[in-house]
């Protein structure tokens, strides 16, 4: 296990360097000059040159990249061109909200998705199965801004159960978490259903049934555990989708998280902020998937990493 972990951590380092290079190149290739954006209509050739020099944008691209990476290795993700705050400050300020949103969404999506998936599998080819799959399809295909507005209108505006927007503690994250978690729930439900159906057909399940095992015990104890491996993989992968989904959800709910920050940073070509946020999100994604891989060994003792 330790050597596996070491290998994974090394791979993580290489992946992050790859991500940083890719993001750096993309940000410099897309049209839109941050200096001209900041100076706007008042830009003169002198002020452009002056600001470029202050931001270090007058240096050759490879030098800019190496200077940036040298900072990253020392824990310095740079300073926002636009706000003047350090990128680390911005991330630390906003990460807790996005993290809570992601965790609550995963919890909601997993519980809801697994329940629907099990119900569908247990009632295969019945109206409940079809209904469960329709619900999961809606979760996957409905645009998150539409779901968000629907939830706001019904639960926050008409019923007054939750705040409409802004961050005011746990209650203000319930509707955004449902919005974000519905797509995850849909995917998990479909995966749980198909995995469960596969497991149910196995010989040992038939044997357990023949021995008169209680149906629920059979499903939960004997089937679900084995069906959870692909589902767990999916949960890990969904984390990336949640980060992407947070961009829209945080904008609609006016949540001061990383998603809304990245939207404004891209629009203003705030290169250090975009780069720092994407690197940080990539780091989280890798860590989450490493944890998921480690959970496999718990779910299936036959899996060994050494």
């Amino acid at each position: 296990m330790p050597s596996y972990l070491l290998k994974r951590l090394l791979t993580m380092g290489v992946t992050l360097i790859g991500v940083s290079l890719l993001v750096f190149m993309m940000l410099h290739l897309i049209p839109g000059d941050p200096v001209r954006y900041i100076l706007g209509d008042f830009a003169t050739e002198e002020s452009i040159a002056d600001l470029e020099s202050r931001l270090g944008l007058d240096k050759p691209l490879p030098m800019q990249y190496f200077r940036y990476m040298a900072g990253v290795f020392q824990g310095d993700l740079g300073t926002s061109y636009v706000t003047g705050y350090t990128v680390m400050e911005e991330i630390l300020n906003r990460f807790p909200i996005t993290a809570q949103l992601a965790v609550y969404s995963i919890i909601f999506g997993s519980i809801f998705g697994i329940i629907i998936g099990i119900i569908a599998a247990m009632n295969q080819n019945t109206i409940f199965d079809q209904l469960a799959m329709v619900i999961s399809l809606i979760g996957i295909s409905a645009p998150s801004f539409w779901i968000a507005l629907f939830l706001i209108l019904f639960f926050a505006y008409h019923l007054g159960l939750f705040p409409i927007s802004g961050y005011k503690g746990f209650y203000s994250l319930i509707l955004p978490s449902i919005t974000l978690g519905l797509g995850t729930a849909g995917n998990i439900a479909r995966m749980t259903r198909s995995s469960m159906l596969e497991v149910i057909k196995q010989d040992y399940i038939r044997t357990a049934k023949a021995k008169g095992a209680n149906l629920y015990r059979l499903i939960i104890q004997h089937s679900l555990q084995n069906a959870m491996i692909p589902v767990t993989t999916l949960i890990g992968l969904q984390f990336g989708a949640l980060m992407a989904g947070a961009v829209v959800t945080e904008t609609v709910f006016a949540l001061p998280g990383m998603g809304s920050l990245i939207v404004s940073a891209i629009a203003t070509r705030d290169i250090p902020t975009v780069q720092g946020l994407i690197m940080f999100m990539a780091f989280l994604f890798i860590i989450v998937n490493l944890v998921v891989d480690l959970i496999y060994t718990k779910l299936d003792p036959r899996i060994r990493y050494d």
């Binding site: 909200i97 993290a99 965790v103 503690g169």
Partner: peptide
């Protein structure tokens, strides 16, 4: 087995709640 994923996620979310910016701690 449920504990293996449910409990860490709940703990993580509680930790993040605790990390919320000072200005936003009191809802």
């Amino acid at each position: 087995r449920t504990k293996s994923w449910l409990i860490p996620t709940v703990i993580a979310s509680l930790l993040f709640t605790g990390c919320a910016p000072a200005s936003q701690e009191n809802p």
